[in-house]
Write a protein that binds this DNA or RNA. Sequence first.
DNA 1: TCCAGGTTTTAGGGATAACTAAAAATACCA
DNA 2: TGGTATTTTTAGTTATCCCTAAAACCTGGA
Lengths: 221, 221
Amino acid sequence: MHNVSQEDYLKRILLLEQAEPGQSVSMGALAGSLSVAPASVTGMVKTLVRRNWVDYEPYVGVRLTDEGRGQAMRVLRRHRLIELFLVRTLDMDWSLVHKEAEAIEHVVSDDLLERIDAFLGYPTVDPHGDPIPDARLRITSNDSECLADCEAGRRLCVARIIDQDSDFLQYIEKVGLKPGTNLKVVSRDDGGQVMEVRLQRGGSTMLAFTAASRVLVESRD
Amino acid sequence: MHNVSQEDYLKRILLLEQAEPGQSVSMGALAGSLSVAPASVTGMVKTLVRRNWVDYEPYVGVRLTDEGRGQAMRVLRRHRLIELFLVRTLDMDWSLVHKEAEAIEHVVSDDLLERIDAFLGYPTVDPHGDPIPDARLRITSNDSECLADCEAGRRLCVARIIDQDSDFLQYIEKVGLKPGTNLKVVSRDDGGQVMEVRLQRGGSTMLAFTAASRVLVESRD
DNA sequence: TCCAGGTTTTAGGGATAACTAAAAATACCA
DNA sequence: TGGTATTTTTAGTTATCCCTAAAACCTGGA
Ligand SMILES: [Mn+2]
Ligand SMILES: [Mn+2]
Ligand SMILES: [Mn+2]
Ligand SMILES: [Mn+2]
């Protein structure tokens, strides 16, 4: 298979750019995020520059070009549609589909992808609440905020989990915080870095800020 | 992606062995079948020997070892289950799924594959009538024969199309000879190398022996 | 302003898998 | 049996993508 690494780099750069909007992505961040040596990143980035997919300033970092962003969005769309397809048709666990999609995303044809999109009814979010770019690569933005930043008393709905780690996703499921769940912030202990949330459907949990910071919510008031 | 070429070679060797049982597979046949230069085959075969997946006699050819046959059967199982899955769930055209499966077969996990198998109800044949090895890599053999060899008057059922070429499959569909079709051989012209077949559901066609030789049938008497 | 520590690049190398061209082996035919 | 034609192997190259080690660069603190 040829383009696999290049597509993974583009997608990763896109996600890192989205995490720190306006900043260029450092080689170190890219290397860490891809579990690859920094020297490997320097090499691959030169390839991406040749393809006009990134702008690169030595010792500073990379930024996607418009063309590169398009490529990256296309990979992201494939990834997320595949994740949702696997959950919907085969009832795969939402904590496992990321790894599966990471490989399949590079080999599905455009025709197959459009069929998956139609089959799923042109969905806008994947099983983790991550937005799915539509066929024109546009994302419908929602105004979600970080659960860790929410005051006590707020009534919220889980919109998205920003972490693909299988163990973390299983933990989130165990405490009942999958996207779509309604909850209320009972209290927060900024000193102890924990908050208590009560689920609408019953039960409550103590949640570390480190965990809550990876849960995005929408206001329900 | 690493193993992709190796898996394709193993699968190809298996299919060529099945086409000429008992013979070893020549390097030229492999090269032609994989659309690769003969020198490339020599190189890859050495890799497969190192992995103990084939026995190789220089200037003669290769044979799968038991371990290599297992690997090859595993790839074949993935390929055919994926083909059927794409046809069943997404209504993809049977003439296009081969190409799609050729890429996906290398990246699906064991877990995903077993889910597909269960979802499909543990099928024994793919959309082209090709047998699907079960989870223990066993194939249920059927006693089909070549349509081109059938005498006039025989009442038959199409079992399998032995050709993955998209155009040929579309031709077969156009003349109504997809697997499962009941037909009768009206006449055969061995001089002109054509035969006439009448479909049970109506219509009849003149079929060249070259085409009929790629259609396997079962007796319906 | 200088330096140490962290980051990034360069240099050199390995694995996989393809190619072409040329040499070697084998097969076939007269 | 000789000699040509076909097949296969070898030799040398290319391209991708990764690595380690060492050099170069940048930055923050003294
Ligand atoms: Mn990937
Ligand atoms: Mn996701
Ligand atoms: Mn394949
Ligand atoms: Mn098939």
